[in-house]
Design a protein around this nucleic acid. Sequence first.
DNA 1: GTTTAGCACTTGACACGCCGGAGTGCTAAT
DNA 2: ATTAGCACTCCGGCGTGTCAAGTGCTAAAC
Lengths: 366, 366
Amino acid sequence: MRGDGSELNERKKMILKAIIEAHVREGEPVGSKYLTQNKQIALSSATIRNEMSELEEMGYLEQPHTSAGRVPSEYGYRFYVNSLMQKYRMSQNELLRMNALVKSRLAEVDKLLESATQLAAALTNYTSIAVKPRQSTLTVDRFKAVLLDEGRLMLIMLMSDGTVKTAQIRSEMTLGADMLERLEFVLNSQVCGKRAEEITMPLALAIEKAAAEAESLVSPVLKCICQTLEGGEGESGEVKISGVNHLLEYPEYSDARKFKELLGVLEEKRDILKLVTETETEDGRPRVIIGSENSVEEMQDSALVFQKIRSGGRVIGAIGILGPRRMDYSKVVSTVEYIAENLSELLDGSPELPEGKKPSGNGENS
Amino acid sequence: MRGDGSELNERKKMILKAIIEAHVREGEPVGSKYLTQNKQIALSSATIRNEMSELEEMGYLEQPHTSAGRVPSEYGYRFYVNSLMQKYRMSQNELLRMNALVKSRLAEVDKLLESATQLAAALTNYTSIAVKPRQSTLTVDRFKAVLLDEGRLMLIMLMSDGTVKTAQIRSEMTLGADMLERLEFVLNSQVCGKRAEEITMPLALAIEKAAAEAESLVSPVLKCICQTLEGGEGESGEVKISGVNHLLEYPEYSDARKFKELLGVLEEKRDILKLVTETETEDGRPRVIIGSENSVEEMQDSALVFQKIRSGGRVIGAIGILGPRRMDYSKVVSTVEYIAENLSELLDGSPELPEGKKPSGNGENS
DNA sequence: GTTTAGCACTTGACACGCCGGAGTGCTAAT
DNA sequence: ATTAGCACTCCGGCGTGTCAAGTGCTAAAC
């Protein structure tokens, strides 16, 4: 029983496939009679019953109770995803919406991920999750300090991962251009390439000394830099979620209590991040986690499909879909794959400017 | 029947108040017998029944069915909020958490609002909403262009509302410091103080001409500026929502279908924005909208408490709480009021640096 | 040997009727 | 004016009976 289906003849496979697809469509246990309507299967209900009975014995199907139809087991879904599922063909409309994302040309990874989750949720009608783990190796390549007005300066940090972060800093004393120049120089010579843990008290003191007249700026500036290096948003990364409301359409989530628990996990974000990032790297196709293959208790009745997003060979995040176990895996896998690919390309390829017209990227800040 | 309660004697008020508070606590219709446990009310159940009957006739109470207890009517809640409700006393713990927000010293309005909603949701155990309407009068006070590397520049915009926005722009040609200087100068002289609608084609052409060698940058830069002026995020403003899952704790929202509809409204965001921003300015206390006082169909069973946030005399947003009609108005009103006040002060007062120690603000960008 | 028709059996969903409890309104006594 | 008492109403839970769907098994048909 390894889900390779070697024990199944063609007819069994066909019937199993039909059952799964019917169940995904209708959401209810499917009976032998219902399957006789399927023209692919030219058999009587009795024969189908026999096959179903054997499929159940083999562990591919389950019966909620004696006289209900059959429901795919987790094992059944697994085999379906591995072997039975056909490639989903995107509709014209879906392709158009995907391309709109590419054309938006958002330069900021955060915004891009946000748009991507929204798109994924809208296309699949499930909940979409994007994660951007914090990189402990993140450092600043170069600093720029800009005078905003005499009480405020803006610190621009070109990060080692190619992104750009900014921070505003207030000062109680009047700022001058010379001070900023000094500050910029000191930061560039002393803080570049340092990880958050490497910014220690002695270093801070050395910097203060070197900063001369800009001394009073050093402490708030360093605080700011550390915050940025430590990953902005959350403790350990960022999670964006979109389209939770879709889930309420599925009877699986009509129980308010259970749904609340799932929502709780999503809001916690930690588990999700762990789940998605800890998965070992695979062949580049989306990873499908069904029910108990997932360790999070509240997600036993759900399935998760996600793929990591690479940029320049490094994993910079992941995007995925969360839905009921009874999920349109074919469509979801294709969608996730396509979006993740596009994102990877976009992040990789954008410096080269695909069409070479008037390019523009933008970001936003306080 | 204007909710002024002039028709009610003290005893009726006391009973009404007890009923409402019991119902808010228990979530179920309250009967006359239950009220006799209340030591404030030293009356027999029969007497209370008579009073309740009269209160129902006057419209303050309702009876779900003949032999159930009474439930406050919308009108009853309204009177409670206007006249009966006592000031909520914050616990030590609550005050501490409020102050943590103040001390976080976030300079960016967006982040501040986000933290504030999270706090409000956590404190009240309802859903919290913060809105930041787009200001059609938004203009740029001053531009700064900074060279990131030879292919990218960063545009910093000091906005008329005191905030700072940034945008990254890519160029297909190698950028030089002189080009940026030129660009900065042209933008400062031609685009400052202009609203999005005022940036027209003829103006763009004039700018291109004036930009000389930086000509090819003008188009993407202007596009970017327009996007920023038009309010970044959404069509007409930004809405942040936190703690939707809290609502699932209340039986009022246990019906998945209804809850989904409400969620839909929240995701739409447009209605919310309209609802909150269109409310006429009042005395500075939180506004309470109960049930049908609100025009959004899906929110008929809910109540909304919110207050506008002012900075420098102008309304820059609002923060509020959404919950069941049966809501702890006392606590919610106090919380919203306190948070809104703190935000206003924070936004107003922060330039003066309350404690005069080492201040720091930060923002984040791509 | 495989397929199918037929039949007995199981089970959940649903409708019905039957209480019990909670709460009320009214009346009469205090 | 207040209250004890009582008849009345109505919801909700519970057990019952019926129905439809679906199964497993057996025996006949191919």
